[in-house]
Computed example of a mutant assay.
Amino acid sequence: MSAEAADTGAILPQRGGLSGRLSDLFWKRPGLLVFLMLTPPVLWLGIVYLGSLFTLLIQSFYSLDEFSGLVIPEFTFKTYAELLRPSNFDIIMRTVVMAALVTLASAIIAFPIAYMAARYARGKWKALFYLGVMLPLWSSYLVKVYAWKLILAKEGILTWLFEVLHITPILDAILAIPVIGGNSLSVSYIGTFLVFVYVWMPYMILPTQAALERVPINLTDASSDLGGNPWQTFRHVIFPLALPGIIAGSIFTFSLTLGDYIIPQIVGSSRLFIGQAVYTQQGTAGNIPLAAAFTVVPIVIMGFYLWMAKRQGAFDAL
């Protein structure tokens, strides 16, 4: 058999039917297949997500006629100037401070849990670790929040536990702290803080654990051999290498706290957070431009935060 005949015989004959012709077409033109596969998600991202964000950004430059209550579609910075009013600026600062505190507390609590899982959990114990971390995520978000509402209530199990341990004066002293206290934990910033930490904790544990698993054990052994005590090993070896994972987890805890409005609505005081302000301005007040301007604030904050996180290599631990 000649070489030409061998080459001709090596090529499969064209298949019949629509599916066969399409298969041959995609085999000959793989770029067309990639184009068809990427077009739906790109259109969804471009039209639904980016389009809505662009529309939101445009509306934030509109203003509201205080006399008629109608939106004036004219370019102005008047709405953004309203964010600097004491009442609105307090909402922004309150939300940012809460998000920062929740992120810090989540990192402190999550690190030893993640370290134990990365260093000592093996086999079924590691499976139990993942199950324990992921299990709260499988339950309803609202069910968890309302459950914490009952736990933190004045007649809840936490108050009962303080009474059983005869340390109720400590709880009363905590609730008596100005600004963050209240009649009970369920109507205080402390309660809001506790629920935020509980709900977003898994998002901090998993990236931190993934980063700690990448820390070579021989580095910690070398630090010990060179005379480093446990604190020095943690400070100069473990923590710097685990920092990208912590920052990756903080992206979730910080951003989710920044935009959440359900938890402060159910657990906490009457003072608003950004999410509640957006809901109130767009729904009750009908001030869509101000609601859009409030929405732009966390977008800008998270944009800067993600830029800083990228510089620290946080996306490598996601």
Rank of each mutant, 00 (worst) to 15 (best):
G46Q: 09
R15F: 01
N218H: 14
W231K: 10
Y305P: 08
Y198E: 11
V297N: 03
I109R: 00
A100D: 02
E163T: 01
R214L: 13
P40L: 08
L194W: 06
P112H: 05
A176K: 15
A210H: 08
I72E: 10
T284R: 14
A285L: 14
F54V: 08
L101S: 09
T208W: 02
P264L: 02
L33A: 15
M302P: 04
L53F: 10
F129D: 07
N229G: 14
T95Y: 03
L131M: 11
A6S: 15
I151M: 15
T103W: 00
G286Q: 06
T168V: 12
G191I: 07
A114R: 06
Y305K: 01
L25M: 07
F234W: 09
E82N: 13
I170T: 13
Q59H: 12
I72G: 01
L135K: 03
I167R: 08
L53A: 05
L212Q: 08
N229M: 01
K149V: 00
P112E: 07
T55P: 01
I174C: 12
G123P: 10
V42H: 00
I177W: 13
I157S: 13
Y80E: 03
I301Q: 08
F304I: 15
I247Q: 01
L241M: 15
F89Q: 06
K126V: 03
G46T: 09
L36N: 05
S19E: 10
L12E: 14
P202S: 07
Y261M: 11
G123F: 09
L33M: 15
L57D: 03
Q232K: 12
R119N: 07
L258I: 00
F67Y: 13
R311T: 11
R311P: 02
N218Q: 13
S139Q: 10
P289G: 08
V42G: 03
G313V: 07
I58S: 06
A100L: 13
I246Q: 04
A3C: 00
V187H: 12
G191N: 02
I92A: 05
M308V: 11
L22R: 03
P216W: 09
A99E: 03
V237A: 02
I170D: 06
Y198R: 05
L33C: 10
I251W: 01
K310H: 11
D172M: 12
P86E: 12
L70Y: 13
D316F: 10
D316M: 11
L290C: 05
A3G: 08
I251N: 07
R271V: 08
S224R: 15
S140R: 01
L212A: 03
E82R: 15
L241P: 05
K310G: 13
R311F: 01
A285V: 14
L45Q: 08
F252K: 03
S63Q: 11
L70W: 11
R94S: 10
A277R: 06
P240Y: 04
L243V: 11
F196W: 09
F234A: 09
S250P: 02
F162S: 04
T79H: 02
I72K: 08
I108V: 15
I108N: 05
L57F: 13
W125G: 00
L290Q: 02
K144M: 07
T103G: 00
V96M: 00
A210W: 04
V199M: 14
P289Q: 09
Y130L: 14
S269M: 04
L272G: 01
E74A: 12
Y115T: 06
L84D: 05
F67K: 13
A110I: 07
P30V: 10
L45I: 12
T79P: 06
